[in-house]
Design a binder for these strands. Sequence first.
DNA 1: TGCAATGTAACTTTTTTCGTTCCTGGCCCC
DNA 2: GGGGCCAGGAACGAAAAAAGTTACATTGCA
Lengths: 144, 144
Amino acid sequence: MLSSSRFVVAVHALSVLVCQRGKAPVCSNAIAASVHTNPVVIRRLMTELEAAGLVTSTAGRSGGFSLARAAESITLADVYTAVEDETVFRMHKIDPNADCPVAAQLGKALSPSLRAAESAMTRSLGLTSLADVSQAIHREEAAA
Amino acid sequence: MLSSSRFVVAVHALSVLVCQRGKAPVCSNAIAASVHTNPVVIRRLMTELEAAGLVTSTAGRSGGFSLARAAESITLADVYTAVEDETVFRMHKIDPNADCPVAAQLGKALSPSLRAAESAMTRSLGLTSLADVSQAIHREEAAA
DNA sequence: TGCAATGTAACTTTTTTCGTTCCTGGCCCC
DNA sequence: GGGGCCAGGAACGAAAAAAGTTACATTGCA
């Protein structure tokens, strides 16, 4: 249902920053190499992450991106809300003036349940932090 | 993130059937008129709903679709799993043999959290039945 | 027997997402 | 102080996915 991979790509990029915390900022080119995409795509994502207060950016030579907060304090829910503005459930076009009462009222009738399901998902995402993801990565790496 | 409106359309179609339960089956043309789409689109959806045991179809003249079970026993989670086979979170292409450990292990490291979030959403959808939706529709209609 | 309905395949149109190419300006490093 | 590296956008193009459309075979009631 999520029509894009923006969220997973954002987590990927942030995980790279977690690995480099304390060191020099990471430029969009390096991140793009790991994600296997174009640097501009990364920059566009980082713009939203910066607006959400998750990363900081510095221009100029030896510039790049760094985490704005501790990895322990950034949850997947923060990332999700930062980069994914649309709702999970996409509505089709409905005519509020339709003859059929179902067509006319379905939107209002359904949205409470859909919002509840979406916030349940967000709450679950809030249980995992970027530090947890980073630890899991190292665990998997050691097992491989 | 859900890239389609299949789920909401399916709920719409099923709600129409709830209104007509006990009466004659509803043909795809009538449903399509309410949803404002093509009958073939509806039939494709109904095929999946039938495979999931939510509706029954009868061909021939005066045929159409009917609910296979009581509206109280069909939840939004049933509809969701019936028509939406892809996962909520879409992965980008990752190279398991990448140099960067993040790129190589992110998939395995992340999937438990993503699956947990998805099942939290599904559990929430399971709290609402088609009967609930139908009641909400009538409530909204009376208020309008 | 004829008509109205499902079922399904193939195609077209539309929308969305992703990628790419420019340019502008900031800033470190030599 | 200049040159190259970096972010930040704008605009465009390509690719992928969704939705819609047409056409036709089949089924089953009237």
